[in-house]
Simulated scan of single mutants.
Amino acid sequence: MPLSHVSKLYSVQDAKIAALTADPATGSPTYGALIDVPGIQTMEISGDIETKTLRGDNVKLATNSSLTNIQVKIDHAKVSLDVLMAILGGTVTDSGTTPAQKSVWDLTSTTATLPPFKLEGVTPPNGVDVVGGDLHWTLHKLTLSAFPDLGFAQEDFRVVSFTADADPLLSNGKWISATINETAAAIA
Protein backbone atom coordinates (compact mmCIF):
# COMPACT_ATOMS: atom_id res chain seq x y z
CA MET A 1 0.00 0.00 0.00
CA PRO A 2 1.50 3.41 -0.94
CA LEU A 3 2.10 6.16 1.61
CA SER A 4 -0.64 8.68 2.21
CA HIS A 5 -0.38 11.76 0.04
CA VAL A 6 -1.57 13.90 2.99
CA SER A 7 0.53 14.88 5.99
CA LYS A 8 1.17 17.47 8.67
CA LEU A 9 4.38 19.49 8.33
CA TYR A 10 6.22 20.18 11.55
CA SER A 11 9.38 22.24 11.72
CA VAL A 12 12.48 22.35 9.54
CA GLN A 13 15.58 20.51 10.67
CA ASP A 14 18.07 20.98 7.86
CA ALA A 15 18.58 22.76 4.55
CA LYS A 16 21.35 22.54 2.01
CA ILE A 17 22.14 24.23 -1.28
CA ALA A 18 24.24 23.08 -4.21
CA ALA A 19 25.44 24.96 -7.26
CA LEU A 20 23.69 23.94 -10.48
CA THR A 21 26.69 23.13 -12.69
CA ALA A 22 24.90 21.81 -15.79
CA ASP A 23 21.32 21.69 -17.05
CA PRO A 24 21.42 20.21 -20.54
CA ALA A 25 18.24 20.21 -22.63
CA THR A 26 18.67 16.44 -22.91
CA GLY A 27 20.12 14.40 -20.07
CA SER A 28 20.16 15.15 -16.38
CA PRO A 29 21.10 18.21 -14.32
CA THR A 30 24.32 18.10 -12.31
CA TYR A 31 25.03 19.85 -9.04
CA GLY A 32 28.12 20.75 -7.02
CA ALA A 33 28.82 19.75 -3.44
CA LEU A 34 26.11 20.27 -0.83
CA ILE A 35 26.57 23.33 1.40
CA ASP A 36 24.79 23.52 4.75
CA VAL A 37 22.48 26.48 5.36
CA PRO A 38 23.47 26.91 9.02
CA GLY A 39 20.80 27.31 11.66
CA ILE A 40 17.84 26.99 9.29
CA GLN A 41 14.76 28.62 10.84
CA THR A 42 12.17 28.96 8.09
CA MET A 43 11.66 27.88 4.48
CA GLU A 44 8.64 29.64 3.01
CA ILE A 45 7.52 28.70 -0.51
CA SER A 46 5.04 30.79 -2.48
CA GLY A 47 4.08 31.27 -6.09
CA ASP A 48 2.42 33.55 -8.59
CA ILE A 49 -0.37 32.61 -10.95
CA GLU A 50 -1.44 34.83 -13.83
CA THR A 51 -5.12 34.54 -14.71
CA LYS A 52 -6.70 35.63 -17.98
CA THR A 53 -10.44 35.89 -18.39
CA LEU A 54 -12.21 35.79 -21.74
CA ARG A 55 -15.40 37.81 -21.93
CA GLY A 56 -17.90 38.17 -24.73
CA ASP A 57 -21.63 38.59 -25.22
CA ASN A 58 -21.58 40.42 -21.87
CA VAL A 59 -20.64 37.22 -19.95
CA LYS A 60 -17.58 35.40 -18.75
CA LEU A 61 -16.74 32.73 -21.34
CA ALA A 62 -13.54 31.16 -20.03
CA THR A 63 -10.66 31.50 -17.59
CA ASN A 64 -7.13 30.21 -18.03
CA SER A 65 -4.33 30.40 -15.49
CA SER A 66 -0.58 29.99 -15.79
CA LEU A 67 2.06 29.46 -13.14
CA THR A 68 4.45 32.38 -13.59
CA ASN A 69 6.77 32.10 -10.59
CA ILE A 70 7.72 30.03 -7.57
CA GLN A 71 9.64 31.82 -4.84
CA VAL A 72 11.33 30.69 -1.64
CA LYS A 73 12.34 32.74 1.40
CA ILE A 74 14.92 31.35 3.80
CA ASP A 75 15.79 32.58 7.30
CA HIS A 76 18.84 31.08 8.97
CA ALA A 77 20.62 31.79 12.24
CA LYS A 78 24.25 31.93 11.12
CA VAL A 79 26.04 33.59 8.24
CA SER A 80 27.97 31.25 5.94
CA LEU A 81 30.59 32.62 3.55
CA ASP A 82 30.20 29.45 1.45
CA VAL A 83 26.43 30.00 1.13
CA LEU A 84 27.03 33.64 0.11
CA MET A 85 29.49 32.50 -2.55
CA ALA A 86 27.05 29.86 -3.83
CA ILE A 87 24.06 32.22 -4.13
CA LEU A 88 25.72 35.54 -5.02
CA GLY A 89 29.09 34.59 -6.45
CA GLY A 90 32.33 36.06 -5.23
CA THR A 91 35.28 34.26 -3.75
CA VAL A 92 36.23 32.97 -0.31
CA THR A 93 39.91 33.16 0.59
CA ASP A 94 41.48 31.54 3.66
CA SER A 95 44.84 32.81 4.88
CA GLY A 96 47.12 33.02 7.87
CA THR A 97 48.03 30.63 10.65
CA THR A 98 46.78 30.38 14.23
CA PRO A 99 46.23 32.77 15.99
CA ALA A 100 45.86 35.06 12.95
CA GLN A 101 43.74 33.02 10.52
CA LYS A 102 41.25 34.81 8.26
CA SER A 103 38.42 33.78 5.97
CA VAL A 104 37.34 36.56 3.61
CA TRP A 105 34.37 36.59 1.23
CA ASP A 106 34.81 39.21 -1.50
CA LEU A 107 32.12 40.19 -3.97
CA THR A 108 33.31 42.30 -6.88
CA SER A 109 31.76 43.65 -10.04
CA THR A 110 33.23 40.70 -11.97
CA THR A 111 32.45 37.96 -9.42
CA ALA A 112 28.82 38.91 -8.63
CA THR A 113 27.49 36.21 -10.96
CA LEU A 114 24.22 35.25 -9.15
CA PRO A 115 24.68 31.58 -10.10
CA PRO A 116 21.77 29.12 -10.19
CA PHE A 117 21.51 26.69 -7.29
CA LYS A 118 19.35 23.93 -5.83
CA LEU A 119 17.82 24.14 -2.34
CA GLU A 120 16.54 21.22 -0.31
CA GLY A 121 14.95 21.43 3.14
CA VAL A 122 13.71 18.64 5.39
CA THR A 123 11.48 18.19 8.44
CA PRO A 124 12.83 16.34 11.46
CA PRO A 125 11.94 12.64 11.77
CA ASN A 126 8.28 12.43 12.78
CA GLY A 127 7.71 15.90 11.31
CA VAL A 128 5.11 14.23 9.09
CA ASP A 129 2.20 11.87 9.80
CA VAL A 130 4.29 8.79 9.00
CA VAL A 131 5.97 7.68 12.24
CA GLY A 132 9.72 7.87 11.67
CA GLY A 133 9.28 9.59 8.30
CA ASP A 134 10.06 13.05 6.95
CA LEU A 135 9.28 15.41 4.07
CA HIS A 136 11.81 17.03 1.74
CA TRP A 137 11.05 20.16 -0.29
CA THR A 138 13.41 20.51 -3.26
CA LEU A 139 13.60 23.57 -5.51
CA HIS A 140 15.73 22.42 -8.42
CA LYS A 141 16.89 25.70 -10.03
CA LEU A 142 16.89 28.95 -8.07
CA THR A 143 18.36 32.40 -8.61
CA LEU A 144 18.41 35.17 -6.01
CA SER A 145 15.63 37.70 -6.49
CA ALA A 146 16.84 40.17 -3.86
CA PHE A 147 20.11 40.86 -2.09
CA PRO A 148 20.35 38.79 1.14
CA ASP A 149 19.53 40.43 4.46
CA LEU A 150 22.92 40.73 6.17
CA GLY A 151 24.53 42.96 8.79
CA PHE A 152 24.19 43.39 12.52
CA ALA A 153 21.49 44.06 15.13
CA GLN A 154 22.00 46.13 18.27
CA GLU A 155 22.17 43.94 21.38
CA ASP A 156 20.58 41.02 19.55
CA PHE A 157 21.35 38.19 17.15
CA ARG A 158 21.13 39.01 13.44
CA VAL A 159 19.17 36.48 11.40
CA VAL A 160 20.38 36.06 7.82
CA SER A 161 17.80 35.62 5.06
CA PHE A 162 17.50 35.43 1.31
CA THR A 163 14.78 35.17 -1.31
CA ALA A 164 15.11 33.33 -4.61
CA ASP A 165 12.94 32.65 -7.66
CA ALA A 166 12.64 29.21 -9.26
CA ASP A 167 12.93 28.35 -12.92
CA PRO A 168 12.06 24.99 -14.43
CA LEU A 169 15.05 22.81 -15.29
CA LEU A 170 15.75 22.59 -19.02
CA SER A 171 16.52 18.88 -18.71
CA ASN A 172 13.21 17.73 -17.18
CA GLY A 173 10.99 20.77 -16.53
CA LYS A 174 11.01 20.34 -12.73
CA TRP A 175 10.47 23.44 -10.58
CA ILE A 176 9.72 21.94 -7.17
CA SER A 177 9.37 18.50 -5.59
CA ALA A 178 7.89 17.32 -2.29
CA THR A 179 9.03 13.89 -1.15
CA ILE A 180 7.47 12.08 1.81
CA ASN A 181 9.77 9.33 3.09
CA GLU A 182 8.50 6.43 5.18
CA THR A 183 11.91 6.41 6.89
CA ALA A 184 13.59 9.77 7.52
CA ALA A 185 16.50 10.40 5.17
CA ALA A 186 19.33 12.90 5.18
CA ILE A 187 19.60 15.43 2.37
CA ALA A 188 21.77 13.85 -0.29
Rank of each mutant, 00 (worst) to 15 (best):
M1I: 14
P2V: 14
H5C: 12
H5P: 13
S7I: 11
K8Y: 14
K16F: 06
A18H: 04
L20A: 01
L20Y: 07
A22V: 05
A22N: 10
P24M: 06
S28Q: 15
Y31G: 01
L34S: 03
I35F: 05
I45S: 06
T51S: 09
K52E: 08
K52F: 07
L54E: 05
N58K: 15
L61H: 07
A62N: 13
T63V: 10
T63H: 03
T63M: 02
N64K: 15
N69H: 06
Q71I: 10
K73R: 11
K73G: 05
I74Y: 00
I74H: 00
D75T: 09
K78A: 15
V79E: 06
S80Q: 03
L84R: 00
A86Q: 03
T97K: 10
A100L: 08
A100D: 08
W105A: 00
P116Y: 08
V122F: 04
T123Q: 01
P125M: 06
N126H: 13
G127A: 03
D134P: 01
D134I: 01
T138M: 08
H140T: 04
L142S: 02
L144G: 03
S145D: 08
F147K: 12
L150Q: 05
G151F: 10
A153M: 09
F157W: 12
F162G: 01
P168R: 02
L169Q: 04
E182W: 04
A184M: 01
A185L: 09
A186V: 03
A188M: 09
A188T: 13
A188E: 14
